[in-house]
Every structure is written in structure tokens, then in C-alpha cells.
């Protein structure tokens, strides 16, 4: 299961920041990376994925794969922008259900 914790950051009228962390149930291989990249492309917020000190833009499938995130490790999703909350929720959902 996903162990997610909400650490909502600053909020203003135009942009909100939001982040959450998830424990990967499976390695972040090509297929979930593809799902993640396509989902990330649907939001206007700036989104970051962080794993083991490395940060990538999840819209780039190769960057996501290059994170080398394995099952049991933690990935943090961070977003800033008008749809930050939804973006984090959508990406968390994919990460938490990766097979």
C-alpha cells in the first residue's frame, strides 16, 4: 500500500504548492514511467519527482526511468501551480499502483 503523507505548502490566490511521498510497490520501470509522463503532461502546474536526491520532471519518460527507483523506496511528488493538488493526486495514484 501507499504510505502517503500530505505536507501541503504555501497557498496563494494564483498558485498553490503541494507535495506527497509514496512508497513504491514495484520498480519504476518503463510502463509506469510512461503512464506517469502522460499524466504529468495533462497539468499546467510545474511538477517534480524526487528520488534518492535526484529530481526530474515527470513529463519526461526517460528521466523518470533514469531515476532507477526500485520497489520499497520512496518517491516524492511535488507540484506548484493552479492544479498542483490534482497533479500530485494523479501521479501518486499511478505510483502507488505501479506493477
Amino acid at each position: 500500500m501507499s504510505a502517503s503523507n500530505d505536507t501541503t505548502g504555501c497557498e496563494s490566490a494564483e498558485t498553490t504548492g503541494h507535495e506527497a511521498a509514496v512508497l513504491l510497490p514495484a520498480n519504476l520501470h518503463a510502463r509506469p514511467a510512461g503512464l506517469l509522463a502522460r499524466a504529468a503532461g495533462e497539468f499546467s502546474s510545474t511538477i517534480e519527482l524526487e528520488h534518492n536526491g535526484k529530481t526530474v520532471n515527470p513529463a519526461g519518460v526517460l528521466g523518470v526511468m533514469a531515476l532507477g527507483a526500485t520497489a520499497g523506496s520512496t518517491v516524492t511528488v511535488r507540484a506548484a501551480g493552479p492544479d498542483a493538488h490534482d497533479a500530485v493526486a494523479a501521479l501518486m495514484e499511478i505510483l502507488a499502483n505501479a506493477e
Binding site: 518503463a30 510512461g34 509522463a37 502522460r38 504529468a40 503532461g41 495533462e42 513529463a59 519526461g60 519518460v61 526517460l62
Partner: peptide, 9 residues
């Protein structure tokens, strides 16, 4: 791979 994912988005 990168191109198809970007195009799909």
C-alpha cells in the same frame, strides 16, 4: 519512446 510519450500528452 520519448517522442511517443510526448505526442500522447
Amino acid at each position: 519512446v520519448a517522442a511517443v510519450v510526448a505526442a500522447a500528452s
